[in-house]
């Protein structure tokens, strides 16, 4: 049985790779970009789910961590000529201005710096609980954004960075999404993961069991921020531009929607909903565009998409609080059980 499941897993991975190969050669650039965004949202969703879903810390600072990662990766990978063109107001500080790193080390550096930021933020903020933590992390995210806006010689301030190399492609984004997923699964099933879940269920009970609350919370927070930074780096090098306004609370809100819809505390749920949310965000764009029904044309209303989107969040949280998966995970057993059960369903036998 174990063998069979491994074969199923291998077949599905092969199918995904085949799909990506086909997509890479037959899809147009817009569709490829959406696929890339899906994979990036998987990384971001998983990183936020580790903090919010598995460890139960309500953190809203994700956009800030992403900004750190995106700026680090962008500055490190940008060719020297592009740097000179970008920093025409104040030149970039000395060692950085003629330094070009390959993509992967730059991404990891982005993740590490973001983890350092999380460590500095976490030291005071993780003493707080619940909604206080939410506000404090939200505030820190906002402070990071303000610092970026004002550090002209490092980040080019409010002008942002343009002509960042578009290194992110399907292989990078899906490769890193896959790596993140594997690391998350290993982490969640380790003793650390069990400690995280224990903290989520009941802090006081977890502490009585000998779990060092602060250490574990900090670990989840720092690892989450690391992957948020990597996700941010991927995003920056996918879009080709970054500016401080990209990293407003809206971004955190989008990721929050991904993990709420997928189920707080489910890895597979997050992956599924990252795809659903990203693709539906694009599909819902028709709400902003004029709609032609043949006999009548409804003029496009800008912003309608976000209205529908926030309504959906409220509906999900009121009526489907568990999201798609709750805290369950996808497994072949459940799929097989579902297939085997199906024929009996019609007959009504149990």
């Amino acid at each position: 049985m174990k063998n069979k499941k491994n074969i199923y897993t291998l077949i599905s991975i092969a199918l995904v790779i085949l799909f990506l190969l086909l997509a890479n050669s037959f899809f147009d650039s817009y569709q490829i970009r959406i696929l890339n965004l899906c994979a990036i949202y998987v990384v971001l969703g998983l990183s936020m789910n580790l903090i919010n879903g598995f460890t139960g810390l309500f953190s809203l600072g994700h956009a800030g961590f992403m900004a750190v990662g995106a700026y680090t990766t962008a500055i490190l990978t940008m060719p020297i000529a592009a740097k000179e063109a970008n920093y025409f107001m104040t030149p970039l500080v000395s060692p950085l201005n003629n330094m070009v790193w390959p993509f992967l080390p730059a991404l990891i550096m982005g993740g590490l710096l973001s983890a350092v930021a999380a460590f500095i933020i976490g030291a005071p903020a993780l003493r707080l609980k619940g909604d206080y933590l939410a506000i404090a992390t939200l505030g820190f995210g906002e402070i990071i954004r303000i610092l970026i806006t004002n550090a002209q010689s490092l980040t080019n301030g409010a002008l942002g960075l343009k002509s960042i190399p578009n290194t992110t492609n399907i292989w990078w984004s899906f490769g890193i999404a896959a790596a993140t997923t594997v690391i998350m699964i290993l982490l969640i099933n380790s003793s650390y993961g069990r400690a995280f879940k224990a903290i989520r269920e009941d802090e006081i009970a977890a502490e009585n069991m000998g779990i060092n609350l602060f250490k574990h919370k900090m670990l989840a927070f720092v690892i989450g921020a690391f992957f948020a930074g990597i996700g941010g780096g991927l995003l920056g090098n996918l879009l080709g531009t970054v500016d401080p306004n990209m990293f407003k609370f809206t971004l955190t809100f989008n990721i929050l929607f991904v993990i709420v819809l997928g189920g707080m505390g489910s890895i597979t749920g997050t992956i599924i909903s990252a795809f659903i949310v990203t693709i539906s965000m694009e599909v819902l764009r028709f709400l902003d565009a004029p709609i032609n029904l043949g006999f009548i044309t409804i003029p496009g209303i800008t912003g309608m998409r976000m209205v529908v989107y926030s309504l959906l969040l409220i509906i999900v949280i009121i009526y489907f609080r568990q999201g798609l998966m709750g805290t369950r995970e996808f497994s072949w057993d459940s799929v097989i059980a579902l297939i085997k059960k199906a024929p009996f369903k019609k007959g009504g036998a149990k």
Binding site: T302, M306, S310, I314
Partner: peptide, 28 residues
């Protein structure tokens, strides 16, 4: 009100949703 007995995190998310809804409705 529908979330009165729900975990705190749910009500907080709902509040964020309302905030977003009103803001975007105002933009529209």
């Amino acid at each position: 009100r529908p979330l009165r007995d729900a975990p705190k995190i749910s009500i907080l998310i709902s509040a964020i949703g309302v905030s977003y809804l009103i803001q975007n409705l105002a933009i529209v």
